[in-house]
């Protein structure tokens, strides 16, 4: 895919989100992983909200991972993380990071719960 030609000829769907996100680097203001969960605190139909933000709020009215939001709004994760950071900063969203590990290994109780969940599918 060549964004360059889209940019030159007619503004493609990706140009705006890039323009909004541009100049800001990936590590961002929050440590968002692909499985960090986010949920909207605000409705998506607020007047004056830029469409890219509205789409993200719409996609995350229920808890979703960063990867799911990216899939729903059809933007690369690197772009979505920047836009999510904006929304979190404004208090329009909250996030929850994956379980922290005190050691190299995950919590045995967590592993057992996942195993039980898989067996019960």
């Amino acid at each position: 895919m060549e964004y360059e030609s889209e940019f030159d000829i007619s503004p493609g769907p990706l140009v705006r989100p890039f323009a909004i996100a541009k100049g800001r680097t990936r590590p961002g203001r929050y440590d968002l992983d692909m499985i960090t969960l986010v949920v909207a605190l605000a409705p998506a139909d607020r007047p004056g909200l830029m469409p890219e933000y509205a789409e993200i709020l719409e996609a995350a009215q229920r808890p979703q991972s960063v990867a799911e939001v990216a899939a729903a709004v059809n933007l690369p994760m690197a772009v979505v993380k920047v836009l999510l950071s904006d929304l979190i900063e404004r208090g329009d969203m909250i996030f929850r990071s994956p379980p922290a590990r005190t050691t190299q290994r995950p919590d045995p109780k967590l592993l057992q719960a996942v195993l039980d969940g898989i067996r019960n599918l």
Partner: peptide
């Protein structure tokens, strides 16, 4: 706010 009770593993 809607609570974020879940956490994710992969």
């Amino acid at each position: 706010s809607p609570a974020l009770e879940q956490s994710a593993v992969k």
